[in-house]
Amino acid sequence: MEYVIQQTLNALSFGAEYALLALGLAIVFSIMGLVNFAHGEIIAVGGYTMVAFASLAIGNPVIVMAGAIIAAMLASLTLERVAFRPVRKADPTTGLLTAFGVSIVLQNIFLMFVSPRPIAVTSLYFLDWPIEIAGIRLASLQVFETLTTIVVIVALMLFLRRTVLGLAVRAASLDFEMVRLTGIKANRVFAMAFLISGLLAGLACIFIMARRGSVDPHLGFDPVLKAFVACVVGGFGSLPGAVLGGFLLGAVEVAMLVMLPQSLGGMTDAFVFMIVALILIWRPDGILSPAVEKGDKL
């Protein structure tokens, strides 16, 4: 029984991280149909900001964390201005390929100007200590991560439902032209979406860095690949879908780690992706997305 609870909690914290990342992808996708593969590089920007603070001998964790989040938000805004504005009206495939291109450019900029090797960042290790409650062993980081994700979901919900700009963001995912007709500036809506996306990337960056303790140019690629999958499974562009997909992926991954025999250890990813593919074959647009009409809309 304890074992089951233990693994359930593990799945929850895995899922929380994926949900955090998937939300960052989904909020951008819901508005402009862009699959932002450069999200992972925004996480890496946060990581390198921590390196910069460490080299300036600033160890105050609040400053380090705030700095990483702000850097990620600024990076996200900059990408929107520089790279994604020209493809704003293009189809999802064009956007996806652009984002791949941006991601390759940023990875290689880190490689060229910083270092191709991992750089250690020790300033966040204090976040991670073992806790034991009623025989269940946990890492404090898992608790923080799950709590943060819950807070983020609630805050995002309040923002999207209670503020004008939030309403505009939600409305923009349905009918962008209509939003513009009501006098809301398109650029502000896009900037807001990317700002939120950057904030979520910054938060995810803190947890990833606290766990890994080092940053390298490819830091964000694998987590974002998983988050991308979570988004698609949940229903691309749907925010509840992103959360659901994130937790589902966490559960599947922990289940695979637990159930697969040791000898198949290297195949975890293969099985996770296989299950994802099967879900997509069952529901091609993801679990929570409404059916799309393919014909012309009048």
Binding site: A83, P86, V87, A90, T94, L97, T98, F100, G101, V102, S103, I104, V105, L106, Q107, N108, I109, L111, M112, P116
Partner: peptide
């Protein structure tokens, strides 16, 4: 090091734009 990667990514981004 990494210049070829930057060039490759830039080609994709610029073509798409």
């Amino acid at each position: 090091l990494g210049l070829s990667g930057i060039a490759l990514g830039a080609v994709i981004v610029l073509t798409m734009a």
